[in-house]
Computed example of a mutant assay.
Amino acid sequence: MEKYEEVKDIGDGNYSVVKLIRHIDTKSLFAVKYIPRGHTVDERVAREIINHRSLRHPNIIEFKEVFLTPTHIAIVMEYAASGDLFDYVCSQGTLSEDKARYVFQQLISGVSYCHDMEICHRDLKLENTLLDGKRIKICDFGFSKSYLLHSTPNSRIGTPSYIAPEIFSGKEYNGKLADIWSCGVMLYIMLVGELPFGDQKDLQNLKKTMNKIMLVQYKIPDTVHISQHCRNLISRIFVANPMKRISMREIKSHPWFLENLPKESIKEAQDVNYTKENPIYSLQSIEEIMNIIEEAKILATTSSSDQLEDLTEALKKM
């Protein structure tokens, strides 16, 4: 931490604290995610760091570096100053079809890139989509899996109201096609201002929510006026059988998606010289990062879970 200074808290989760930090020399702002050392540094944390490190795209929060403090492992990332998409949609109520399309085009650009890099996100939602001005930035790769490094997805993880039907089966599934379903949920919420499969009361009853998703029980209210092209795209995303669901390639050639497609975003994405064949990773090597992750696990043998919770609470108050 000698090259950074803490500015303020940004947020916290079950196992992590996120703070805004400033580089002392350059004055650049970054977000840092602190995860307590010990038993919380598991395979999921390793996947989050390694997968995120391998991605660089205008619509994905950029990974910077990872380091250790005496009590935490810290993941330094690009800072998006305009909050998240959930708060933005809540403040607007609903988005116009043009605004929703503009966000969706960027979302698909980022997710499609992840898939090209053989990574599925598995927890796409409004809260995991940050805003930097008008640009969206996908974040939080804690549930992500790489088809190059990890086993085929088969676990029931993600946020219930965004989960694709096949995830509930408990069998192996295609994480990329499940991501497409989640993108559809995000589009629906932006346009309608509600969840497509149940309301907040339904979310308290997971079985009820699951049944609605499995049966694809959704409708667009009569009070919401959107084009037939948009309705067609949503209906092709919300298909229970993943093999019959619209593909990423088909989404990117759909008439609704192509309308008013921002040329600067396409050019910027193409200008990022970053592919599986020609990767541009962070300055830290995988070996260095894996050594840091392994060292971060050590505290598990010397501290109890209560002590780890105390350390996290203390960090929140710093």
Rank of each mutant, 00 (worst) to 15 (best):
D140G: 09
Q200V: 13
N14V: 05
K99Y: 03
I10C: 01
R37F: 07
S265D: 15
K8C: 12
I163S: 00
E166G: 02
V45S: 08
L261F: 09
S265M: 12
L55Q: 08
E294S: 14
V76N: 04
H229W: 01
Q228A: 11
Y34S: 10
S146F: 07
L29A: 08
N14D: 04
F257W: 07
Y188R: 02
L130R: 09
K316A: 02
N51E: 02
S305W: 09
H229R: 10
D9Y: 06
I167Q: 03
V32G: 03
D12M: 06
T312E: 12
N278G: 00
G184F: 03
L215T: 13
S109Q: 14
K201H: 13
Q284C: 05
K267D: 12
E65K: 13
K297R: 15
R156N: 11
F67K: 07
Y102T: 02
L20K: 13
S16N: 09
K212D: 09
D310N: 13
Y147I: 01
D9V: 12
I60P: 05
Y147D: 07
A80Q: 04
R231S: 07
E313T: 12
Y274M: 07
S235V: 01
K297A: 02
R231H: 04
M243G: 03
S304R: 03
Y162F: 15
V76C: 06
P153M: 09
Y274K: 11
I292T: 15
Q270M: 12
K267M: 10
L308I: 12
S96N: 05
T301K: 14
F238M: 06
N14E: 07
N232Q: 13
K3W: 11
S253Q: 15
T71E: 14
C114V: 07
S303W: 13
A178C: 11
C90H: 04
S253Y: 01
G83F: 03
G110R: 10
D25C: 02
G93I: 05
F67Q: 08
T223K: 14
E65A: 05
T69S: 12
I220D: 11
Y102Q: 04
P153G: 05
V216G: 05
R53H: 12
Q284N: 10
P70T: 00
S247W: 08
P165H: 01
P279C: 01
P36G: 00
D12V: 00
E48T: 08
G38K: 06
C120Q: 04
P153V: 03
L195R: 11
N211Q: 14
K244A: 14
K316Q: 06
P221N: 14
G175D: 00
P58D: 04
L20C: 08
K317T: 13
F257G: 00
W256C: 06
P279N: 03
D199Q: 04
V272D: 00
P165F: 02
M290E: 15
S96Y: 05
K33E: 08
N278H: 15
V111T: 09
R231D: 04
H115G: 07
I35A: 09
E118T: 15
S265G: 12
G170R: 06
H225I: 13
I286Y: 15
M77T: 14
D199K: 01
K8I: 00
A31F: 10
Q106G: 12
I292C: 06
